[in-house]
Design a protein around this nucleic acid. Structure first.
Lengths: 101, 101
DNA sequence: ATAATATACTAACATAAAGTAAGTTGTTAA
DNA sequence: TTAACAACTTACTTTATGTTAGTATATTAT
């Protein structure tokens, strides 16, 4: 039995963004690539465990890319893909809403 | 010890919209007031229990209002407040993103 | 040489949120 | 009198998230 859906794409979007922390992570990455630690400092109420889990999901959804720079010590950065950057208008509108209401 | 926050308003917005189903409920209410049953039919994968819980949260956050029409049988409708309707641009941008990416 | 510090995680366990199935209340219809 | 419907609620299970501690690898301090 298939589920009737309002709009599969829309529902898929919410499956991702409707998870705790996902939106905030995308939001901070909109200001540029960041390291694991950077984000955990910017969003201190989120645990490392959650950040790690969300990174994996966002990478699988091709919203972020993981860059490994083989320096010593190794530097790892997370960056939004074009798809991820495409969320900027959504975040901007949400910011406006949050400020005005 | 206070938690440093990126932007309290923004984080608050996510506390609500970052919960499962909330976004979809708002989305369907953007097309007009609806009854409990209407929404449960439009979003069949969501349980009544969740719908009931989300309604309460959205009402408390003044995003929806609950109207009771004392007909027989009683008719109850949920409608977006101006604050709730203010989420339209956010939803529109998300829709665009979902369609294009 | 050894201990301490740092980054980027992972593991184990506890609690909170969401899913599932059935039941409640008040009404009208057959 | 039994059934049907709307709008929920309750009890219980499963999944998600929170909390604390620990690992691997490398550099720096003593």
């Amino acid at each position: 039995m298939e589920d009737y859906q309002l709009c599969p794409k829309f529902e898929n979007a919410f499956e991702l963004l409707g998870k705790r922390w996902t939106g905030l992570i995308v939001h901070v990455l909109l200001s540029g690539p960041k390291r694991f630690k950077d984000i955990s400092v910017l969003i201190p109420s989120m645990s490392d465990r959650m950040l790690s889990e969300r990174f994996k999901e966002l990478e699988a959804a091709e919203i972020i890319i993981r860059h490994v720079y083989p320096e010593t010590p190794v530097r790892i950065e997370y960056e939004l893909t074009p798809r991820g950057k495409g969320l900027k208008p959504v975040m901007d509108e949400l910011q406006k809403w949050a400020d005005s209401h």
